[in-house]
Amino acid sequence: MTDIKAEIDVLPGLDSSARLLDVENLHVEFRTQAGVARAINGVDIHLDPGETLAILGESGCGKSVTAQAIMGILDSPPGFVTKGAIRYRGVDLLKLPEEQRRKVRANHIAMIFQDALSALNPVFSIGFQLGELFRVHRGTSRQDARRRSIELLDLVKIPAARQRINDYPHQFSGGMRQRVMIAMALALDPKVLIADEPTTALDVTVQAQIMNLLAELRRERNMGLILITHDMGVVADVADRISVMYAGKVVEEAPVLDIYARPAHPYTKALLESIPRLDMKGQQLNVIKGLPPNLLRIPAGCPFHPRCAYARDVCRADPPPQQYDVAPARTARCHFWTEVVGDEPAGS
């Protein structure tokens, strides 16, 4: 297989025994006219092959910026990575020249976006856009590229792929466009797929189709999948592990069963108690007071303290110094995590 050789040529130092993806102490800031927005303040996440990691959090907490930093597509300026490492199989991507990062992006780590229509080029046919990937990155002949494009559209279950290959993006429904995006992301057989809110704009019935498709492809290809979402239902359905973000930090990380049964961070707990459930009636909704912080002025101490039901004086003065180990493979960034994890979940 020439593809594999191409990979090794691209990435000197690639160590197949090192972790698939390891993000360590990542910091990103946006230098804007209004000031410096500290969007990411020390994020640690990691990913293994075949695994689904969900990054969960509310609008503005830094989910997409984390993904953009991993992909190397940060809007820069104003965005800058100021600290940290992003290691793919041992290679720190932040140290690579742009030329090589572009190749990593195509061949190793791929991403699908929330808004498929704006990510696809409206003036080229679906077939051309898919085929271009093979021609540019693999030097495939026109005819072969076309054949492989049809195979990909089949793979993502576009009906009558052979007929539809010459259609343009606007001729596809929202769900079908998202499938085309998935096809493009998978074209060069990446080992890591980042899906940033892939179904947020879609109906639930279509969401179910797309999530099933992603799970199937992840399994077949033993890919690592990072799913970015704010939907705690979707996470419960598909994730192996969860990282909950707040104000640019991971505040809790845990296997999916543990976090829903016994959250260890007050923010996670409050989120779980604030969503209505399809299978419950007459439920009392807990309200999280206040708003997420303005990133230009993140509160001193623990950034969650103005909204936290557990907050005490120490929280206003000192941020939790570390992610505390709650259990093996479980951490929480809270002074009082023992108390939180010991509390009965409200409303059950």
């Binding site: 009906p159 429904s173 769900g175 079908m176 639930v204 019935t205 279509v206 969401q207 179910a208 189709q209 099933n212 939907d231 705690m232 239902g233 979707v234 996470v235 419960a236 359905d237 994730a239 999916v256 069963l257 829903y260 049964a261 779980l272 969503i275 459930r277 399809l278 299978d279």
Partner: peptide, 22 residues
């Protein structure tokens, strides 16, 4: 059936109806 429920212990336990087409 397509609405996910925020409870991982129910994963695969509910009746799933996947609609075809648009």
């Amino acid at each position: 059936s397509a609405v996910p429920v925020p409870d991982p212990t129910l994963r695969g336990q509910r009746d799933q109806i996947v609609l075809e087409g648009d």
